[in-house]
Amino acid sequence: MNFPSKLIENAVNEISKLPGIGKKTALRLALHLLKQKETFTEDLSASLLALRKEVQYCNSCFNISDEPVCSICTSQKRDKSIICVVEDIPDVLAIENTSQYQGLYHVLGGVISPIQGIGPDDLKIEALIQRVANKQTEDKIEEVILALPATMEGDTTSFFITRRLKEFGIKVSTIARGIPIGGELEYTDEITLGRSILTRVNYSAD
């Protein structure tokens, strides 16, 4: 793409480094900024700068936070005996939006994949073990829910964590996999359907 100005070109190159944004969208965004008042761009860049400089991660669960310990971890309403382990921050938001979970979280920051050079030490796995170990005396952790992606890497990571947690004798569970709500059986892929039959649950008449 040829640009009439070096300034535009620089801006487009920077913006298009963002995920999901190509050169054309970047150009549209840059031109949009030029059409707005100067304060618009100032506010935008100030907020981005502040985000980058001041962002903190919760010391306990590694979720994004304004304080050293996040609002979920400090909330009195949350059940502190359950930890839900997720791959990344958007997963916390997704589970929070269900309003079905009142426990705590633990953000790993990825899943184990030796091909990509990601091992347990690159993730917050040791911190999770410490959390469970430290709480053995007061407000004991009773359950760890593994809510990792249903991929081979997710499964391996779940298995690795389960092995590490074995010595504490607590309940370790994983979120259910199967037919989506409102889904038709005939359109469900064979692997999911097969697994959902293998891991079927009891149906109660009560």
């Binding site: 184990i112 391996t156 690795f160 092995r163």
Partner: peptide
């Protein structure tokens, strides 16, 4: 040993 055990099992 503990790390590779995850893959051995699979």
């Amino acid at each position: 040993k503990n790390f590779i055990a995850v893959y051995d099992r699979e």
